[in-house]
């Protein structure tokens, strides 16, 4: 980092610098007026473009939201006895929301500590060359299409977990989430969550690794010079510095876990909401949409889009919460 500082002047050596050397500016305002007109125009164009891009995204998102609301509206307005085979919309959507939350929560519970561990391993433990290769492999895994994860889940993971589930239901069956009888195919919510975890690990790891690598070297060296062990150094400098970034990374992973369709649709043997994670049952919103969309028409199509809207709103709520958490921790961030 220190080296970058020294290099910056050479990068920016140019007309702007020489222009300001003729007269010493008194105030920032004066400084701005003194620079060449081209530079000022550049500033305006650049900030304008940045603003326009931001606004464009907002517009696109509003368009998506409007589309969702318009398409979903009939499901809310229509007589509830016609929705989802007479169940009504809210009784239909509630188990799906719960299933989605459980699946995503378990996936993140598994993925977050592991990802942080792996990111630390790559950034602070592994030898440099090995770390580069590992980073490469992990990035690669983010790209495996979800169909492949789904196929891997059914053909390899689910059968492999069946003995584990049998053992769990025998040993820990008194806990409701491990209540038997376990699924004979292994296609349970826990399996789906594990597949989701494997899918989000590359995303979280990749972002975390980049952030860990950006920790100011001086902080780290200061900690080590004071006699801290490697772990103490990480706990005192790297983690506080990276905390907002870690939360961001987890949110990215959460987005993927909540919205993932194909892998869950393939792996999970869906059914009504049940507490046990090792029996077949439960369902997520995204998988429900993917499974039923192809044959849906009329009101049932509206219902599915309404389910998409609910997922959308749910994501909104979670993200507001996460932002709030980050803003509370801002003062600890070592960055700006």
């Amino acid at each position: 980092m220190a080296k970058t500082l020294h290099e910056t002047p050479s990068v920016t050596k140019g007309r702007d610098v020489t222009a300001t050397q003729t007269k010493t500016p008194e105030s920032p305002k004066e400084l701005r007026e003194m620079s060449s007109g081209r530079g000022a125009a550049g500033d305006r164009i650049f900030s304008g473009a940045a603003l326009a891009a931001g606004v464009l995204i907002l517009v696109a998102l509003v368009a998506v939201a409007v589309f969702l609301v318009v398409q979903a509206l009939p499901a809310f307005v229509a007589p509830q006895s016609q929705i989802a085979n007479g169940q009504g919309f809210w009784p239909y959507i509630f188990p799906l929301v719960v299933g989605t939350v459980i699946a995503a929560a378990i996936a993140l519970l598994i993925a977050t500590p592991i990802s942080i561990g792996v990111a630390l391993f790559i950034s602070h433990y592994a030898p440099r060359r090995l770390a580069q290769i590992l980073g490469y492999v992990i990035d690669l895994l983010a790209a495996i299409p979800s169909v492949i994860f789904g196929a891997w889940g059914i053909s390899f993971l689910a059968p492999a977990l069946v003995p584990g589930y049998t053992w769990l239901s025998n040993a820990l069956g008194w806990i409701p989430i491990f209540a038997g009888p376990p699924s004979a195919t292994g296609k349970t919510l826990l399996t789906a969550s594990i597949v989701l975890a494997v899918m989000v690990i590359p995303i979280i790891t990749s972002v975390c690794r980049e952030i860990f690598l950006q920790t100011p070297k001086l902080h780290e060296e200061a900690a080590l010079a004071l006699g801290a062990t490697r772990w103490e150094m990480i706990r005192m400098t790297v983690l506080p510095f990276a905390r907002p970034g870690i939360i961001s990374a987890v949110m990215l992973g959460l987005g993927r876990a909540l919205g993932e369709t194909m892998a869950v649709a393939l792996v999970l043997s869906s059914g009504p909401l049940i507490a046990s994670l090792i029996r077949s049952g439960n369902q997520t919103i995204a998988a429900e949409i993917a499974l039923n969309f192809p044959e849906a028409s009329g009101l049932s199509l509206n219902t599915l889009i309404a389910a998409g809207l609910v997922l959308f709103l749910f994501t909104l709520a979670v993200n507001i919460l996460a932002r709030w958490v980050i803003s509370r921790h801002k003062e600890f961030s070592g960055a700006n």
């Binding site: 603003l51 931001g54 606004v55 998102l61 949110m251 369709t261 998409g308």
Partner: peptide, 30 residues
């Protein structure tokens, strides 16, 4: 660089986060 603390920036950040949770099939429908 520009939007620090502005309401528009906060709105964009929030909605960008929400966009990460759009199920891919909904994006296709849209």
């Amino acid at each position: 660089e520009y939007g620090e603390g502005r309401r528009l920036a906060r709105a964009i950040t929030l909605f960008v986060d929400v966009m990460t949770g759009i199920p891919s099939i909904v994006a296709g429908l849209f």
